[in-house]
Amino acid sequence: MSTLADRISGLFFLLFGLAMYLWINPNFIETVDSRNIAPSTLPNIVSIVIAASGAFLTLKPTQHQVRNPILMAKTGLYVGLLTAGIYAMSWFGFEYVAPVLALAIMWLIGERRPLWLGLGVVAMPAIIWFLVTQVLGRALP
C-alpha cells in the first residue's frame, strides 16, 4: 500500500520516457546532416534515462506518501478555474476577467467579509491596471 505512489509514478515515467524516445522525439525533432551533436541526441538520452529510472522505481519503490487525495482534487478545481480565467482573458481581456477570477478564488477559499472581498476584487485589479497601463505604459494581457 505505502509503496503504491512510487509504483504509479515510476510506471508513468517508464511509459513517458518510452513514448518520448519511440514516438515523440522521432516525429518532432528534425534530422540534419549534423556536425557534432544531432538535435535528437540529448532528448533521446534523457528519454532513455527517464524510462530506465521509471522502470527501476517501479521495481524498487520507496515509502513515499502522496499528498491527501482530497486536497489534490481541490487543487484540480483551482487549476480548472485558472485555466478558465486564462481562456476568458484571451477573449475579454484582463480588466474584465481579473475581478471575476479574484472573486471566484476568494469565494472558494471561504472569504465572505465584504471589506476583504472588496480589496481583493476591486482594489487589487484596479491597482494592477493603474500601475501597468498608466505608470509603465504596458499592455495588460
Binding site: 484582463f94 481579473a98 477570477l101 478564488i105 476568494m106 471561504g110 480589496l119 504596458r138
Partner: peptide, 21 residues
C-alpha cells in the same frame, strides 16, 4: 499577515500580469 484569501488571489493576478509582460 493579511488573510490568505487576498494574498493568494492577488499573487495569482500579479503572476499572470508579470509573466505575460
Amino acid at each position: 499577515s493579511a488573510p490568505e484569501s487576498i494574498i493568494f488571489s492577488s499573487a495569482l493576478l500579479l503572476c499572470f500580469v508579470g509573466v505575460s509582460m
